[in-house]
Every structure is written in C-alpha cells, then in structure tokens.
Write a protein that binds this DNA or RNA. Structure first.
Lengths: 150, 150
DNA sequence: AATAGATAGTTCAATGATTGAACAGTTAAA
DNA sequence: TTTAACTGTTCAATCATTGAACTATCTATT
C-alpha cells in the first residue's frame, strides 16, 4: 500500500495533520451544539481531570498568554461553570475547579464527543488502533521534547 | 504496553489529538518565523498544490465562511504573494495562484516545516510510521464521510 | 428571449479571541 | 530589608470570523 519516499511521507503527514484537525474540530463543534466553544470544552476537560489546575498551567498547555486564559476562565466563571479558589499557602495562586453546573454540562457534552470518537475507532481492528495510539503517543513525547528545547 | 478499555482508548485519543495539535501548531509557528501565520502557510500550500484553486474550495477545506477566505486572500494579495485570475468561461469564478514572490516565500518556509516533520518521523521504524500514516489516512476518510452525512 | 433561481465572490458591521504592556499582590532570595 | 521573580488581572489594540446584504454571472424553465 505505502510505497512512499521520505519526502512524500512528510508531505502526506503535514496534509493529514491539517485535514484531520479541521474535520475533527468541525465535527466536535457540531456535537457541542453551541452550548460550548471547542476551546471551552477542552478547558473544562482539562480542569476536570487535573488536580489543582491553575491559569498558568492552562496557558502552557493551550499555548496562549495568561491574559487570554483569564478571558476564557472569566467567561466560564460568569456562567457559573467554574470556581476559583485561592491557595492558602501561596496566595498568588488560584485553583480552578468545576462547579456542579460545570460538571453536569461537561459530562453531557463529553458523552457526545465520546460517542463520536468511539464510532470512529471501533471501525478499526483493535490491534491497528492500539498501535496507532501508541505511535501517536510517541509523537506527542517527541513534540514535548522539541518544545522544551526551544 | 496497551491494556486499555475502549473508553480509555477514546479518552486517550481525544487528549492526544488536542495535545499533538497544540504542540504541532506551536512548533510550526516557530519555523514560520513571523513571516506567515499558520493559516497563511496552509493557504499557500493548498494553492500551490491545487490546480484551479478557488475561494469556495478553500472555504470548504478550511471550514470557514467564504467571507473569511476573502479576508485571508486579500491580505496575501496585498503582499503580492497571490494572483487572482478570472475564469474566461465562467466569469464568476476566480482562480488563485502563487506569484513568483509567493512561490519563493512558500518554498522557503516549506523547507523549514519539512525539516521539522522529517526530524520527527525519522525517529521511527519505517514500518511503524507507514502503518501510522495509513491508519491516519483511514481516519481522514471516515471523517470525510461523517462530514458529508451532516 | 424573458424570467427566476442558483452560484462565486465581495463588502461591511459586529463579535470574539489573542496579544502586549502595565499593574497589584504575594513570595523567595540576597 | 531590598530586590527580583511569580500569579493572575485589566485594558487597549489587533486580528480572524461570522452573518447578512450585495454585485455580477450563469443555468434552467417557460
């Protein structure tokens, strides 16, 4: 199936990365049904799974300035989806957690995204998709290393 | 290595998609050295490789409204990187091509991106990365089908 | 040929996200 | 104690995107 030179592989990889991301975002957006923007969903997801999540950490993960995170968080906070609680030891730090309403909305939308992704990956042999995710994970590690160097 | 349930696979896939995209975009941006934005680069790339490329086509691929494409194209056109030529048979249609300056800038930046991606994929066994790209390609096809349904 | 409907691309005002710089409050180090 | 570093915020400016209205053009139907 694949009889490609390195250059062709690289080109294919770049195009695929772009295409898959655009289509993925578009399908995710559809599932969110205008209740949340994509970034808002990923923000809730990150806060949900992260103990003692802070704005500084989000800024690093989302690769934007802290002022942009403040804007996103304030918007979710205005809707009473997020709580901000100050660290008692280091009073500069603000921890982010989901409110009950935030958790409920997140869980509802999460389920739709899960169903979407599940409908995709169950079209593969278990072995194939596991191998794919393993390689994807290695790529993620390489990217992390490259980013830390810079 | 992978002893994951479907639910865990799905979750891992979602997180990886997000993380890899963020890191990838950030590294690409670095290579572009502020000469082009990421979207501008992908726009030039798409025009470069596509015969008779139009705004409507770009709007579909980039999943934005046509008015947004007009803005992007006009910006590149102002810098004399893109040419607009009207179809002589159907005078509604405008074809987009790179000017000499556009081609030169594209080629220069493309090389940097290629080197970046090459430095990543050459860290894998040829077999592993080819299998990865094959699976990636299948995912892309599934996404295309899903998008067409909607 | 005349008309109605569809299509390609553009304009423009409004919205939303992101940046950069300045700032307050807090902590750590010299 | 002073200085430097860090967390998070505010605010003005910039940029991308949308939605709606518009022009020009083409297609199909009568």
């Amino acid at each position: 199936m694949s009889q490609l030179s390195i250059k062709e592989l690289v080109d294919r990889y770049i195009d695929l990365t772009f295409a898959v991301h655009k289509k993925g975002e578009s399908l995710v957006k559809e599932q969110l049904q205008s209740e949340l923007s994509n970034d808002q969903f990923y923000t809730l997801k990150y806060i949900y799974k992260t103990e003692n999540c802070t704005s500084t950490e989000l800024a690093k993960v989302f690769d934007v300035k802290k002022s942009a995170i403040t804007a996103v968080i304030t918007k979710l906070w205005d809707q009473d989806l997020i709580e901000r609680t100050r660290d008692q030891n280091d009073r500069r730090v603000v921890y982010l957690t989901l409110t009950e309403a935030g958790l409920e909305l997140y869980k509802k939308t999460e389920e739709r995204i899960y169903n979407l992704v599940e409908s995709i990956i169950t079209q593969f042999e278990e072995q194939e998709i596991k191998q794919f995710i393993d390689t994807y994970e290695k790529i993620n590690n390489i990217l992390t290393t490259l980013q830390e160097k810079q």
